[in-house]
Each structure stands twice: as structure tokens, then as C-alpha cells.
Amino acid sequence: MKPLRRACLVLASALALVLLTGRGATAGPPTDQLRESIDRALQALGNPDLRKEIRTRERRAALRGIANDAFDFDEMTKRALARHWHGRTPAEQKEFVQLFADLMERSYVSKLELYAGEKIRYTGESAEGELATVRTKIVTKQGTEIPVDYRMHRRGDRWLVYDVVIEGISLVANYRSQFNAIIQTSTYQDLVARMKTKAVSVAESVKE
């Protein structure tokens, strides 16, 4: 390592130390709460008892509990259904939140499973009133970095995630386009039916 490079590293670490012991300008409550949830999730993933393939269901249940604490599934569903949300009855809305939470969990948790054992770096946070974005990078074993941003809002004293942006792709926006495509070419009932079959087919593949 060249001296100049080392100097930059030392300087950067020193800067971080000063700011952390003072008031962290880049790592506020949103980052702290998110980090806590992710650490818990990674712990569950790395737990040797839960790690075995047979234990997939238990592990998913543990992860589901963590996700429920960290994510605002109501808000995510509202945003993903967008204009189709308002025409639904409260019962339908409740059902859809549940179905969507299942789907989100599968897509997010299974991605997290792929990344198990890899490093997560928290690269910044921008907060404005009740809203915040926490930027992270997943560093794979090959050294590839995958930017994952968490959009959060404050509910009481908790910061909850309402969208996850992976490599520039917002999950909620992506589901919004899928839901919209199905509702427009078919019906809302068809969308619900598809979400249900999806849940069943995945549950079966987990059992195997």
C-alpha cells in the first residue's frame, strides 16, 4: 500500500471516529434501526440450527417476525396498488396486504439468503422530516457491490421501511407495474388468484 493511500485511509477513519463520538451526521436513527433489523436477520440466516435446508420453514418464520418489525407492509401495499387501492373494501385491502407481504418476503428474504455471509456496508443516509433514505452496499464474495437503498418513514418512534431500491430498481414501483398490468388486462380478482397460487407453489417447493 502506498503511503499516500494509507494516509487517506487513516484520515478517513479518524474523521469517522470524530463524527461517531460526536453526533453522527450520516448515521441517524433510521440507519441504526435498519442495521439492527438486518443484523437480526443475518443472525437468523447464519444460525447453524436454522441454516440446514430442512429448517427453511422455521428460518423463514423467524425472518418473517423480523420483517414485520422493520417493514410497513400497509404502506407498501398502498403504494404498489396505487390507484387500484381505493376501490377496494377494507377486507379486500387487508387480504391484499397479507398476500403482498408474503410475496415481498419471498422476493426479499430469498435474495437475502443468496447473499448470506456477505458484507453489508452502510454508505449514507439522507433524512428530511418524517422521511429518510438509508443507502447500503452488499459486497459479494467476488467483490461486486450491489447498491441497496431503503426508503423509510417515521411512525411514532420507529422508522419503517416502505420501499427497497436494489440497483436502482424500486421494488414497490416494480410491483406497481406488475399489478397494474394484470388488473388492466384482466381483473383485480385474477390478480388475487395469481398471488394465492404463487404462495401455494412456493410453499410446496419449500416443503420438498
Binding site: A25, T26, R35, Y122, G124, E145, E167
Partner: peptide, 24 residues
């Protein structure tokens, strides 16, 4: 990871141009 992350954000290294592989 935390120290590095905050340091880079502060030093502005994180916003260095080009693609995502050109990481902090």
C-alpha cells in the same frame, strides 16, 4: 463497515463519478 461508510460519505469519496463498480 460503519466507520468506512461514514468516512466515505463525509470525505465525499462516495460520490466519486462513474458506474457503480467505481465504488467508494
Amino acid at each position: 463497515g460503519l466507520a468506512l461508510g461514514s468516512a466515505m460519505a463525509i470525505a465525499g469519496c462516495a460520490s466519486v463519478p462513474t458506474a457503480r463498480t467505481d465504488a467508494a
